[in-house]
Simulated scan of single mutants.
Amino acid sequence: MDGGEESAVADFLQILEEHRKNCERQGKYVEAEIAKNRLEELKLHEENRRKEAMRSRQIAERLGVEEAHMLEFQQFNMVWDKKMEAYEGHAETLVEAMKVRHTKDLKEFQRKLLQKQARPKFSRELLNLRNIQEHLAKAKDYTEAHKMKLKADALEAWEIEKWRNQKQQEMFQQEAKFKHSKQQELIALQKRIQTGREEQKKRRQLDLERLLQRYQNVKSELEAQQNLERMRAAKQLQSGAFMNLQNRRTKKTRG
């Protein structure tokens, strides 16, 4: 009911009250009783209407707060989901970039290892065999020179194979050490990412707690205001009923 309708009801009640008073002054008590009863019915109806209107309005206010909170909560989750998604995307990019760089670094490291390989340093025994071989050849003792060459070739092949195995083992160890250092670098990055992820979760939780606290504050404040409004309305009704009772007692005493 809008202000115009309330004003019309108030005017009608005023008219009905004047009619009751006129009937009372003129001794038309039956009509005065009818008017009185009608007044009480209308007043009771108006009180109930106002109570229901206040109740409906307060429910609408509470629903409005709930709806606003749900919208804010949805917006909160949407914003934070995007933040977390962006963080995870950036973290994945960092990890992939490091892996690509590590692969490139490993290839370069292996290339440099191969370049560093020098000719093997032969044993004194092999060098002596080669010297003897040369002397025999110069002395035109080719048969013995050939025998010495076969012996020196066998020893040289053995020493080269030994050297290669040793160098290969050294390369494996250096490569393993290099890979380990890169793995540690990757683990450190992943730990930093995890730490950042946990910080993101903590900030999200703190923001959520603040949002929920604001909602509870608004809800509590609205409940307090509505309780105060109901108390004031109840006091007004009690005051009106008390005044009506006093008026009735006064009239009976005078009568």
Rank of each mutant, 00 (worst) to 15 (best):
E92T: 14
E96Y: 10
Q58G: 03
R38I: 03
N37D: 10
A32H: 00
R101Y: 03
V79N: 14
E17V: 00
E17T: 08
L113R: 07
E66W: 05
R38F: 03
N77T: 10
E88L: 11
E18M: 06
L94R: 12
I34W: 03
N77H: 13
K99I: 09
V9K: 01
I34L: 12
E52K: 09
D11Q: 10
E46K: 08
H69P: 01
A32P: 00
L44Q: 12
D11R: 11
G89N: 14
V65S: 07
Q110I: 12
A86Q: 13
Y29E: 06
R111F: 01
Q115K: 15
E33V: 05
H19W: 06
N48Y: 01
H45E: 11
R62C: 05
F73L: 15
R20P: 00
L106R: 07
F12G: 02
T103D: 12
A35Y: 00
R25N: 09
E5Y: 02
N48T: 06
F73W: 15
M84E: 09
F109S: 02
L42T: 04
K121E: 13
H90Q: 13
Q58D: 11
K36T: 10
K116A: 15
F12Q: 11
S56A: 14
Q75T: 15
E96N: 14
D105M: 06
E66K: 14
K104F: 06
K43E: 07
R25D: 13
A118N: 15
E17D: 07
K43A: 02
L39Y: 06
Q14K: 09
L44M: 10
K121G: 07
A60G: 03
R20V: 01
L71V: 15
T93Y: 11
Q74R: 15
K121I: 13
M98V: 02
V95A: 10
N37Y: 03
E47C: 03
E52L: 06
K99Y: 05
Q110Y: 06
F109D: 02
L113A: 06
E66F: 07
E40H: 09
Q58T: 08
E72C: 15
D11I: 03
D11T: 07
K82T: 13
V65L: 09
F109W: 05
A35S: 14
L114D: 15
D11F: 04
F122P: 00
A86I: 10
E31S: 05
G64Y: 05
L44E: 13
A118T: 15
E41T: 09
A53L: 07
E52P: 00
D81M: 02
E24K: 05
M54L: 08
E67S: 13
M84G: 01
A60C: 01
H90C: 06
A97W: 01
E17Q: 09
H69E: 08
Q58W: 04
S56H: 10
Q115W: 09
P120S: 06
R101C: 06
Q74H: 15
E67N: 14
E24M: 04
L39E: 07
C23W: 03
L114W: 14
L39R: 04
H45F: 12
L94C: 10
K21G: 01
V65H: 04
K21D: 13
S56D: 13
E61S: 03
I59P: 00
R49N: 02
E5I: 07
A86M: 09
G4N: 14
E88K: 13
K107Q: 12
M98A: 05
K36A: 12
A97H: 05
E47T: 04
